[in-house]
Design a protein around this nucleic acid. Sequence first.
DNA 1: CAGCATCCCTCCGGATACTG
DNA 2: CAGTATCCGGAGGGATGCTG
Lengths: 136, 136
Amino acid sequence: MDGKIVNLKSKIEIYKAMTDGANFADCPVRNVMQGINGKWSPLLVMALAEKPYRFGELRRLVPDISQRMLTQTLHELQRDGYVHREVFPTKPPSVEYSLTDLGRSMFVPLYQLVQWAELNHHAVRDARAAFEAAHA
Amino acid sequence: MDGKIVNLKSKIEIYKAMTDGANFADCPVRNVMQGINGKWSPLLVMALAEKPYRFGELRRLVPDISQRMLTQTLHELQRDGYVHREVFPTKPPSVEYSLTDLGRSMFVPLYQLVQWAELNHHAVRDARAAFEAAHA
DNA sequence: CAGCATCCCTCCGGATACTG
DNA sequence: CAGTATCCGGAGGGATGCTG
C-alpha cells in the first residue's frame, strides 16, 4: 500500500467516486457518460453546438435517424440539462432546440474526443483489418 | 447558402466525413465513437491508463463486471488497436493487458470527458430531478 | 410542424457451467 | 489463471400509423 498503489488507482477512482465501493452500477460518473454516449446523442449535440435547430431541421440534417429516436434522444438531452426546448405558439407550432450552458460546457471535451476520432479513424480501421487478418 | 450555412455545418461535417452523404450509418467517426462508448470500455481504458493489468486483476478491480463482458470488451479494445495483449507462457498461464500508443492517445480526450463528468454530475442530477418534478 | 403510440425484432449483457 | 460456450431476459431502436 505504498505510493505506487495509491497512484495506481487515481484514474479509476474517478469512476468510483460516490459509489458504495462494491460496484460501479450506480456510479454517477458512469451515469453521465451513459447519457452522453447514446447512438445519436453526440451527433445531435454537435449539431446544436453550431446553432439552435427546429425539429424538422434536425430531421433533414440527420436523414437516417428515425423520428422516434430523434424525439427520444432530444427528450433525454433535455432531461439531463444539456438541451433547452422552446415552443413558439405559432400555427402550426414550431419548436426550437438549443444547448444550455451545461450543454455548451459538456460540448468542449466531447468535441475533443470527436476530433480525435476524426484524426485517428484510419488507424483504428487499419488495426481492425490487421486483427481480422491475423485471426483469419 | 451564404457563409452562415457553411459555418452552420462545420461541426456536424466531422461526422459526415467520408460518408456518402445519404446517411451516417457507416460514418467512420461514428464507428470509432461507438467502439469507445461501450458500457465497460471507458472504465477499462481508465484502469489500463494507470498501468498494465492481468485478467484476474481487472476482475477484482471492477467487481461488478461479468467475466463474459470483461473478455468481450478487452477483445474489442484489442481489435480496435487500443489494447495490447501479451501472453506469458508460465503455468498456469498469465495474460497482461496494456494500452498501445493509440490507446494512450485516445485516453487523453477520453480523460477530459470523464473529468468533466466528475465535475458536473451534480448539475446533471439536479437537472434530472427538476425535470422529473416539472413533469410529475 | 412536431410529435405520441404501437408493433416487433435485434443484440447487449448477465448468469451459469465447462476447459486448457 | 484465463478464458469459451450456452442460455435467456430486457433494453435499444427501426417502421408504420395517428394526432393537435
